[in-house]
Design a protein around this nucleic acid. Structure first.
Lengths: 160, 160
DNA sequence: TATTGTTATACTCTATAACTATA
DNA sequence: TATAGTTATAGAGTATAACAATA
């Protein structure tokens, strides 16, 4: 776990690698977006799906925590939730102990829609991944894990 | 250089793996978006960057080809190019042999802005990747290659 | 008629700044 | 005053459908 000391590795090829990472992410993102939107009538947008997924895993979450997790401004999250409340996928109530705080929950329809859209997309993604050899799959999953750790916090210095 | 051996791969469910892929892609996407927009005054959006990058590599490309490559509707690309032409990053002229066809080219400013925004983002990405061990880097690059091949064409049926 | 783009229209996503309500 | 959200405002991205221009 001791992370590699960076003496003065330049790794000229890393830029090419970064390019590959960016291209791939963009490609998959497009696939995911189209896939998500295609699951009608649910037809969630990617940000909507992310919010619903977060709330499903964090029942009663506040607006701030959702905004931070998804990586958008608080006002953007407020608007996003507006839309989800209008579609009756989410309920937004004031917390008893601190009326400023909002409590977000999925409605039954919210659970159903998320399952239909997000989970269906996941299934389709899994179908694709199934065409890889076990070695390739393992390689991919390991890479995802590595990248997630690398980009979750920025302190690439000390690790955790 | 030999890629890391994955012996006891369990691959419990590809769905779990698919979930990891989706989460990671979303995470990196957010990082890339914020990074791109941060390179002021260039401050390109991700779609704008994609269009410019495509034109840089395909001088004289048509609107249709750009739309197809980026994965958006023709009308969306038309709008995107509107913005880029307004910013004088791109020129849009009619092809002599077929006036219906459009010829897209980067202006000098277009080249400069793309270099500043896209390439700077790539550099920052590369800096992060530099913190990985050579094995991890290799693993990641290989995974990107695998995923790109897998998602470039849709035939998830037979693979190729 | 078929092809290549553009326009009209309508939503969603996003941020900054100003504001409201509660602590 | 500080905190949690909302609203006002503005601009970009996206798609579908209707339209225009050229072949």
């Amino acid at each position: 776990m001791t992370k590699p000391e960076q003496q003065d590795i330049v790794v000229p090829g890393t830029t090419a690698g970064a390019s590959a990472v960016m291209e791939t992410v963009l490609l998959l993102m497009q696939t995911i977006r189209v896939e998500m939107r295609g699951h009608r009538p649910a037809g969630l947008s990617v940000p909507q799906m992310r919010v619903l997924t977060f709330i499903r895993g964090n029942d009663g979450a506040s607006l701030s925590s959702a905004a931070e997790h998804v990586g958008v401004a608080l006002s953007s999250m407020s608007k996003l939730v507006d839309g989800l409340v209008a579609r009756e996928l989410v309920t937004r109530t004031a917390a008893p102990e601190d009326r400023r705080r909002v409590i977000l929950r999925l409605t039954t329809a919210g659970h159903a829609t998320l399952a239909q859209s997000h989970d269906a997309t996941l299934t389709r993604l899994a179908e694709r991944l199934d065409h890889l050899t076990p070695d390739e799959q393992n390689n991919v999953f390991q890479a995802m894990n590595t990248l997630t750790k690398l980009f979750t916090d920025d302190p690439p210095a000390t690790g955790d």
